[in-house]
Design a protein around this nucleic acid. Structure first.
Lengths: 181, 181
DNA sequence: AGCAGATGGTTGAACTTTCAAGTAACACCA
DNA sequence: TGGTGTTACTTGAAAGTTCAACCATCTGCT
């Protein structure tokens, strides 16, 4: 702590960033709950699974990609399982592990809810930013995530554009990508 | 929904922004829980009260400034009351209303925990950004908040730099401002 | 082979948030 | 004056998250 306080520019920026960080998840949540009956966290789980090879991910990997603790994910997956959007399978390679796989109904659910979600994202973020600002925001978030998520677990598989997730996904080539948001 | 999907620049930016929005609250929370025994939400309540005239705010106003529902705030204030950090007073002007006021112990708690919190903010955000990027981020968040929080309730009293909150606060002039983060 | 420690995941209890009433006071108008 | 409707908040129950065990399996070491 070399300097104790923030400059007034930093303070203004920080106040706004905190507001953004508090408000944005709520906005995403309400749209998804209203139009799709999903929380943003549930949507994220489905989206992450949809991008994985075989639409399948180990619990630990899914937890990392969604920033969830293992207990939280375990409970959440059980609820999604009750709704037939996801299924649990024992992992053949490691018998301690459990794989979560998107069901066909889960895939359909995601396909059905993605457009409304994307529209919300566009409305709240991209419609109000210039292309330059989008580029600036990409760099800014990249810099911050460098410390917040050094491994880039949450932004995988978007870390390595030379080996996109789609390459490993056999069915519906090119379409899974568009469901990402 | 004129355009259905996002460009790849937008997608990259969006993935990072989501990661940021998910990760940052957790980072703030763990530091505050570890070093101060406060959640970020509790810290925000104390900070907002500290800036208000007489360190007092109506429940509704505090709820707006912290992006909390009224039931959530009511429960949370009761817990802070149990810890003697906040007290509840009936509002003289409107007998339906309740005022929440920061106690001296609450003020001390805030003063004690602010430096560590600010250090975390600096570490995660301002140390990795250039001054230009800080300015860019201020504009970007401003644009987004325009739709997310048109009234600017969460960023008040930083909306009107000509009438700073400090002007209305009698004691410890100039100091309350620095506890804001 | 066998054991110690690490890893992967689940479960139930405690805590927090949300949701659905419910109460009290204010505001307006007949 | 007395409704009628709105505002401000609280409360208790339901839902979700976190926390602290717990079990099973794997890994590495002897």
């Amino acid at each position: 702590m070399s300097k104790q306080w923030l400059t007034s520019e930093q303070l203004t920026t920080w106040v706004r960033l905190v507001a953004l960080v508090e408000l944005l998840p709520g906005a995403l949540d309400s749209q998804l709950r209203r139009d799709a009956g999903l929380t943003h966290f549930e949507y994220l789980m489905l989206a992450m699974l949809s991008e994985a090879p075989g639409r399948t991910l180990r619990m630990t990997a899914l937890a990392a990609r969604t920033n969830a603790t293992l207990p939280r994910l375990s409970h959440a997956v059980r609820r999604l399982e009750d709704r037939d959007l996801v299924e649990r399978l024992p992992c053949p390679e490691d018998r301690r592990a459990t794989n979560a796989r998107l069901t066909e109904a889960g895939w359909q659910k995601l396909v059905a809810s993605a457009p409304g979600h994307v529209a919300t994202v566009r409305h709240h973020v991209f419609e109000v930013l210039s292309p330059e600002q989008v580029a600036q925001l990409a760099e800014i978030t990249d810099a911050i995530l460098d410390r917040l998520d050094p491994e880039g677990v949450m932004t995988a598989p978007y870390q390595h554009p030379t080996t996109p997730a789609d390459a490993a996904e056999p069915d519906r080539p090119g379409s899974s990508r568009t469901t990402r948001p």
